[in-house]
């Protein structure tokens, strides 16, 4: 598999040392990893909550972006954000074909998502969330998101 050496290296580094607010939960194989993130400042929208991320790697990771979604369970809600749908699908150019660079990795994606939350001030869902959540059957990588603003 193309990605094995790279993922093994990443995993080693994740076990070694991680930025504050980011923890490795599960990485039993080279297909699917679970990470937890929380914001480290006092943003009232997210204070006291921990969010769970699921990374899925294809055969051609890191040439291809991993699929990254927030997952919900009893202790992990889906964070409020104008670019995060209530089913956990994330609209972020970094995870899109156009925005992804193979130089990115699991840690840098977590850091990007963390800062995306930190800087957010709107307790909102994306426009058309209801409709999207009800009707979307596509995998995140096949959705054509339009990135309205890259500031958020």
């Amino acid at each position: 598999m193309f990605a094995s050496k790279r993922l093994a290296k990443e995993l080693q580094k994740l076990h070694d040392k991680l930025p504050p607010g980011i923890t490795l939960v599960k990485a039993d194989d080279l297909q699917e990893w679970i990470m937890d993130i929380r914001v480290v400042d006092n943003n009232p929208i997210y204070v006291g909550e921990v969010y769970r991320l699921k990374f899925t790697f294809s055969q051609s990771y890191p040439i291809e972006a991993p699929e990254v979604v927030f997952v919900r369970d009893e202790t992990h809600p889906i964070p409020w954000h104008p670019h995060i749908y209530s089913n956990g699908i994330i609209c972020l150019d970094l995870l899109d074909r156009q925005g992804w660079s193979p130089v990115h990795n699991v840690e840098s994606v977590c850091v990007s998502l963390q800062s995306m939350l930190t800087s957010n001030t709107k307790k909102e869902r994306p426009e058309g969330d209801d409709n999207f959540v009800r009707n979307n059957r596509l995998r995140p990588r096949d959705i054509n998101f339009i990135f309205h603003d890259n500031q958020v």
Binding site: F2, S60, I63, E64, S101, P102, V103
Partner: peptide
């Protein structure tokens, strides 16, 4: 591998950018 993915799977040609971030 990067070019292969861009061309074969994503059908890109005129706008393939350097893999650097």
């Amino acid at each position: 591998q990067y070019l292969y993915t861009k061309i074969k799977d994503e059908g890109e040609a005129a706008q393939i950018r350097c893999p650097g971030d």
